[in-house]
Design a protein around this nucleic acid. Structure first.
Lengths: 168, 168, 168, 168
DNA sequence: TATGAATGAGTCTTCATTCAT
DNA sequence: AATGAATGAAGACTCATTCAT
């Protein structure tokens, strides 16, 4: 049973990424608290979804931090990137799915910042001759996140076991 | 030729792919008819969404047909595939987004059939030595549709002009 | 059973003047319609209360119009005023009770206009020597409406029969 | 001397007379205590409102006592009455506003007793020839309290400065 | 004793759906 | 056949109230 804010938020994230239209009732029940308590913790559904998005974004950003994208061999960096973010793929799936509903620029800006960091890595790889240059680095970054979200959904739908998700 | 039903369905598809939770009211207004008429044409919201999905799937299947994936050079076939499906990317985005809501096996089966056709193409390319073999063909197919959906969303969000979507 | 907007509004006025905190449910039941229909007719509770206030104000204004306050003997005019407004006393009670909740200036302005018309009558009476001048005409007007609201409440509480309300 | 209870009660009276639908939360915050403590002091909202009404009634009664209505010149007595009760006008406004919600006979009886005392004064004045006899003394009393409540509201709404409320 | 945390009950509001015209 | 009007069901939100600390 979830007792504090962040733990409720994680539960909500799990429910919402499977069912974007989940009712507050369902989320509250999944967290083991009552609807009223959920409403006391988060003032309104919008706030809850928004904070869930912000948490997902923080998790993704932290994963990027841990991969130290700007250091060492680009190929190794991409490998570290994949290993770091794939466990968070469900967050990427949630953000991609709800993406169009976030009006707040905070999340959009954070997304763009992440995009830029990954694009910078691909550009570095292209400049160093390690990666092909047939596509703009920005597109590679976009595609990377599309694939990541795809993995997240595949895990959610049970088509892909979480343990084996880490690609080789 | 678009009958009345199909033309309403196309409008519904457009609205629903931009806003999956759109109310019947919005859809009806976008189609220029009243809610009641919309309900007469489709018995209930579920039926409407389901038929929209079926239509999207038909469109995607037709695109695959037109690409003649099993003929000629695999590289050229992939190119034909991309050119054929990218104009239908929004349908892929809709199907991917709503995907988890379709309980009916009809659509899931159709999706798997499409998946199999694309996977077969990649496998043919791998066998002929034209494509790399580092990843299973099934994964390549999955990734292909993830990217396609990504393109569809990018177009919807205005980040990518429809005309320039066709990658080279 | 009430069928159109104005008739529903009158019913709502009756309920609200007896129970300012009456739920939409009660109002709808009193009008013989469902909550949902009530919500279709008036977008939200605030709108309903506001329109009820506007209607009450219109009724009171019309009563003042019919009394032709600026014509003839001031004493006779006051008598006509009393006879015209006392049947509408419940509206005055409603407006006085809810008064503090109306943020919209429309109603406040209308109230001040009514106040001014009555004050003008008292002033005319004072200038003509027919009325005493011990109190400012503005105070007499204020007191007049206080008494009118008092009559409205007395009728609502059954302490005063509507027929006998017209004072002599 | 104001005990804890009475001081909270006075605060509650102030809040409730301005906003009859004020939540327990607001009242508690205005009193500088927590909701839970407020609930320990008064068992339920109804009890709080009821006790507030009883306190208001006590204050009004005490004001009447201090005016010694049954002694001396009726005209002077009315003047003393006005001076005594006008500072308590907000209590009269509260009682008039909430009046219809009090089911308990205690308050209604007290109100009638006050009514009777004021009516007796007017009757004494009429019998002594000091007041006109055009209206029944009971009506004069009713009107007196209506006007008093009107003054209370005017003060609350800021239309009338407390200091200048005492009419001449 | 006083309080932050939790909740059941009730209100407002919306939506998919039906019906009379 | 098409529509405006009406509604039951369901969701978001609030509030008075209780309880563990």
């Amino acid at each position: 049973m979830a007792t504090d804010r962040d733990s409720v938020l994680l539960t909500a994230l799990g429910v919402l990424s499977r069912q974007p239209t989940a009712a507050m009732d369902e989320i509250a029940r999944a967290a083991g608290i009552s609807r009223a308590t959920l409403h006391r913790l988060f003032p309104g559904r919008d706030a809850l979804v928004h904070e869930a998005g912000a948490l997902a974004m923080r998790r993704m950003s932290a994963a990027l931090d841990s991969a130290a994208l700007d250091q060492g061999d680009p190929v190794a960096a991409v490998r570290r990137l994949a290993e770091a973010v794939i466990p968070e793929a469900n967050f990427a799936a949630f953000l991609t799915g709800e993406g169009r509903l976030f009006e707040d620029d905070t999340i959009n800006d954070a997304w763009e910042a992440m995009d830029a960091r990954v694009a910078a890595l691909f550009l570095r790889g292209q400049n160093s001759g390690a990666f092909r240059v047939e596509l703009p680095a920005a597109w590679l970054s976009e595609a990377f996140f599309d694939l990541l979200a795809g993995v997240g959904w595949a895990v959610q739908e049970g088509r892909l076991a979480p343990a084996t998700a880490t690609t080789r």
